[in-house]
Design a protein around this nucleic acid. Structure first.
Length: 420
DNA sequence: TCTGGGGTCCTAGGACCC
DNA sequence: TCTGGGGTCCTAGGACCC
């Protein structure tokens, strides 16, 4: 059996952990740049606030309804996520961290007769220790466990756990699940499936394999197996190294000059460099893109991206910045209102497998030490304590984060004060 | 009349996930 | 004024090789 455990309205729940006044009140968390709603508490959902709605359109509505609004604070959410995962691993021999707020637990060969009892124990424990409410779904495959989790949220709200323990329960669950709500079926496939007469997961389970193969490729075939109770998605107990690492962001304001664009780009390159070093990878290729804001209909639109091979695979920030700016020189055009740019590191390889030729400028041990020290200092004191000159100083373009909560658990200067 | 076959690599685009 | 960011996998088609 597989369990999928999912933190309820995770980002909102994180904000509540350190601010209990928010309990019972509508809370929303916004995307980067305070753009869209990306997490909603139950109360906010009841008010009819939809996922992805642009915040600026709802300013008045938020005020009128006393909605607590937060900028996203990934440092805080990441740290609380780690703590949740650490609690989970105490209950099972193996777990797969699937996302910041989800994990699959391997329940095979556990001494429990009643897995629901185990689920309740886990749920209570996470709530008591971290303060985050969770929902747990248990079923014979990953896809069904995902479904069981959704089913628990919908039909077993009081317990917050559901175990699809036998055929009857599995059928009941699948009958009440629309195809579009199946893990792996997005809007496009949902449309195709409904057009061809498959409305529920139960109906899809009985679909002819050949038809699925032709219309949904091997991905669909794998899904069909999973629905039929045959596990077809591998475990990933060890988080695999990323194949691409990217940093792309819209600016807090529109920018026009290459100088400002280059500061932003250099900062994103530095961010990617840090992530590369953390996973001990080097990039062979980089891609840089710039674009205007497509929502501004009256603005002249421009977008351009360019990929280039680096002379040597590297994760050294200075090198990444140097080549990023070279590419920018080639794709920047004067006279546009730029809204976003990005830096992608592609074709990553482990840093101990980099092939040098005899003529290559190899990173010196001194440079390595500099990078390490820089990463360490920035980790403790916040992201840009130390930066390269190319990243600039004023940062007019930086993200809008008007309603950021403190990093309660990772920054000593922002720790919660009980009493002054 | 009749114009090979088998393979790899790369890229773009489409689908999905949180 | 203001509309997210960061990933994965699969397929098709073209270039190229022998």
């Amino acid at each position: 059996m597989y369990a999928l455990i999912d933190c309820n309205n995770f980002y909102c729940s994180c904000e509540r952990v350190f601010n209990p006044k928010l309990e019972g009140k509508p809370v929303v968390v916004l995307s980067n740049n305070d753009g869209c709603v990306i997490s909603r508490s139950e109360e906010a959902k009841l008010l009819g606030i939809k996922m992805g709605t642009p915040a600026f359109m709802f300013e008045d509505f938020f005020n009128k309804n006393n909605v607590a609004v937060y900028s996203s604070n990934y440092t805080l959410y990441g740290d609380l996520s780690d703590r949740v995962m650490k609690t989970l691993i105490e209950f099972v021999p193996r777990l797969e961290v699937y996302s910041i707020d989800e994990a699959f637990l391997d329940l095979h060969d556990l001494p429990y007769i009643d897995l629901l009892e185990l689920a309740l124990k886990i749920k209570m424990s996470v709530h008591k220790r971290i303060g985050i409410p969770v929902t747990i779904g248990i079923a014979p495959t990953k896809t069904l466990a995902k479904m069981a989790n959704k089913f628990a949220k919908k039909k077993r709200k009081d317990v917050g756990c559901f175990w699809a323990a036998n055929d009857k329960l599995i059928d009941e669950m699948m009958d009440s699940t629309e195809v579009g709500d199946i893990w792996g079926i997005g809007a496009q496939y949902a449309k195709i499936l409904k057009k061809n007469g498959f409305q529920t997961a139960l109906e899809l389970r009985n679909a002819p394999e050949e038809w699925i193969r032709v219309n949904m490729t091997v991905v669909g075939q794998r899904l069909l197996n999973e629905l039929r109770g045959v596990p077809s998605i591998e475990w990933e107990f060890i988080i695999p190294a990323k194949k691409n690492i990217c940093c792309a962001r819209g600016f807090g304001i529109l920018i026009k000059t290459k100088h400002e664009l280059s500061e932003a780009l250099a900062s994103y390159a530095a961010n990617v460099g840090e992530k590369l070093r953390r996973q001990k990878s080097c990039a062979k290729t980089i891609n840089i893109f710039v674009q205007t804001n497509p929502f501004r209909r009256d603005d002249k639109q421009y977008m351009r991206s360019m990929t280039t091979d680096l002379p040597v695979c590297t994760n050294n920030t200075a090198m990444l910045i140097k080549y990023a700016l070279k590419v920018l020189d080639r794709i920047y055009l004067d006279g546009y209102n730029y809204h976003k740019c990005g830096f992608l590191a592609l074709d990553l390889i482990p840093e101990d497998q980099v092939q040098y030729s005899i003529y290559d400028a190899v990173e010196s041990p001194k440079e390595k030490t500099i990078s390490k020290t820089l990463d360490k200092l920035n980790k403790v004191h916040g992201k840009d304590l130390i930066r390269y000159a190319a990243q600039g100083y004023g940062k007019k373009w930086k993200l809008k984060q008007a309603r950021l909560s403190p990093c309660y658990t990772t920054r000593i200067d922002q720790i919660l004060k009980v009493k002054n």
